[in-house]
Write a protein that binds this DNA or RNA. Structure first.
Length: 502
RNA sequence: GCCCCCAUCGUCUAGGGGACUAGGACGUAGCCCUUUCAAGGCUAAGACGGGAGUUCGAAUCUCCCUGGGGGCACCA
């Protein structure tokens, strides 16, 4: 790999909601670039909007990123050479830079009330013209404006966007983008409460913190020229701008929205990391899944660990077109990574999920169960469902399921009974010692092995679908196996003569 | 309405003028393996949105159209 200069990158979410797939992927790309260039990954909280601030979301953010393994080198919790990393604590910095802009003639105080602005916008929308500030305060003589500010008159600060000409900005994935300045508004950069808006705050921070690459969502593309204006007004060197595509609904129609996110949850899927974790997906699977939505390595390789990605990631292979979320693929990747886990690691991760499902776990039993279920799992949540019977005191088969395929109840009872007799005579209880006798019994009864195994499977595991039967029997042990068969025979007898038999 | 971005199988994508009868993966279907379910193996169906150019040659370059997406806040 070619030696790259260390990148300083930042993930800068605003704490207004739960961390979702889109932000996780942005954070991931940041992390990867930082690590492969031996640079720094910075976490910065963009909480300049007090009204939308949600303290829970910051907690959620930290736990989500940590769970994914995307640790940062500088951030609000651990500090760093450019602290503070929370924008609400950097108010004075932004103010001084806003003042510089005013002094240089690139910005001006605006005394228009919000009321007037709303009216203006309404009127413009009615006339079907582009809603924009009419620049009423732009030409107030600076001295007069300064006086009014000094007098404490409520005001915001706006950027004085050039009225003519055009600006060309460069996005790494899309190349040059040229926009006429007259399309641009005189954006507000400092609110009347004195706090800077993203437009100013993020630019100042990115510059001050030495950010070399900015990953952000495509939704910033339209204000991109404006941000470049700010950089250029200050004469700062611009970072590499990389606007990432948005995530689309699984249907491919429309952006992933709050409304759709709710619908997803109803269907048992979620775009929120917190939910995904709860559903039993493992971070390795999630990482592998999201990294491929908008990035690829080549035409074949698709399995990646975080470490693989650090070595192989490249911003050159990023794809600017939007991607639809495919949850089926998450199951696939998660299964892949579950299978890649060591037995002991899987056991460790599985335990809380059994506990949550109400099972108490015997570690030595769990160790024996793991090899049977590892290949069958897509999420950790599935483990209690398919293998809870190993840890349960009783199983509760549906009596009708105990009836062998194409058999009557009587025939099923006989089969179960004969099995009981056979098994109780065995001293060794292992797959190899069980297999031949059971197959011979099936033959003797005129049954296919599958018919007999089916009856025993339901009797012993309580399920029609289970891990391999003989291996399961070994783990469960002779005594419990015989008990469960006895109960199954009783169950079969209880439905004998009832109309509902199949 | 105005501005901007995007465009290969249903989905994620490879492809950056000839190596393309367009490759891989998920999903789907079939077969194999098999005590169920998985996992695995094999096979199949499945795409360059349309139209003009440029070129000996275009999925690849240009333009137009269409479609999709994003933005137009004292939100980020």
């Amino acid at each position: 790999m070619t030696k790259q200069k260390p990148a300083r990158v930042r993930f800068a979410p605003s704490p207004t909601g739960m961390t979702h797939l889109g932000s996780a992927r942005t954070a991931l790309y940041n992390y990867l670039l930082a690590h492969q260039t031996n640079g720094q990954f910075i976490l910065r909280i963009e909480d300049t909007d007090r009204k939308r601030y949600n303290p829970e979301s910051e907690i959620d953010l930290i736990s989500s990123l940590k769970w994914l393994g995307l640790n940062w080198d500088e951030g609000p919790d651990i500090g760093g050479p450019y602290a503070p990393y929370r924008q609400s604590e950097r108010k004075d910095i932004y103010q001084s830079y806003a003042q510089k802009l005013i002094d240089m003639g690139y910005a001006y105080p605006c005394f228009c009330t919000q009321n007037r602005l709303n009216e203006l916008r309404k009127e413009q929308q009615k006339r079907k013209v582009n809603p924009k500030y009419d620049r009423k305060c732009r030409d107030i003589p600076p001295l007069e404006a300064a006086k009014r500010v000094a007098n404490g008159e409520s005001h915001v600060i706006r950027f004085k966007t050039p009225l003519t000409g055009s600006i060309t900005v460069h996005d790494y994935l899309r190349g040059d983008i040229t926009v006429n300045n007259k399309q641009l508004d005189d954006f507000i950069i400092v609110k009347s409460d004195g706090l800077a808006l993203y437009h100013l705050a993020a630019m100042v921070d990115d510059h001050l913190m030495g950010i070399t690459h900015v990953f952000r969502g495509e939704e910033w593309l339209s204000t991109f020229p404006f941000h470049a204006h700010i950089y250029r007004a200050f004469g700062w060197e611009e970072p590499v701008w990389i606007h990432l595509s948005v995530f689309l609904n699984p249907t491919g129609k429309g952006k992933m929205s709050k409304r759709f996110a709710q619908q997803m949850r109803l269907k048992g899927n979620s775009i929120f990391i917190k939910d995904i974790r709860k559903m039993g997906y493992i971070p390795e699977g999630v990482i592998n899944w999201i990294v491929l939505m908008g990035w690829s390595f080549d035409d074949k390789t698709e399995f990646f660990t975080l470490n693989d990605l650090v070595n192989n990631f490249s911003i050159d292979k990023l794809n600017p077109s939007p991607a639809a979320i495919d949850f089926k693929k998450l199951d696939y990747f998660d299964g892949l990574h579950i299978r890649a886990l060591s037995k002991s690691e899987l056991a460790k991760r599985l335990k809380p999920f059994y506990l949550k499902a109400g099972y108490s776990i015997d570690d030595s039993v769990l160790d024996k169960v793991i090899p049977l279920i590892q290949v069958r799992l897509h999420t950790l949540n599935e483990a209690p469902e398919i293998s809870g019977f190993f840890f349960a005191d009783h199983v509760n088969p549906n009596p009708n399921d105990l009836i062998g395929k194409h058999l009557t109840i009587d025939e099923s009872i006989i089969a179960a009974h004969e099995s009981y007799k056979l098994l109780s005579d065995l001293t060794e209880f292992s797959p190899s010692s069980l297999e031949q006798p059971l197959r011979q019994l099936a033959e003797k009864l005129g049954l296919k092995a599958g018919q007999l195994f089916g009856i025993l499977r339901v009797a012993i595991t309580g399920q029609k679908v289970s891990p391999p039967l003989l291996e399961s029997m070994e783990i469960i042990g002779k005594e419990t196996v015989l008990n469960r068969i006895t109960i199954a025979i009783d169950l079969l007898k209880s439905i004998e003569g009832q109309p509902n038999q199949s």
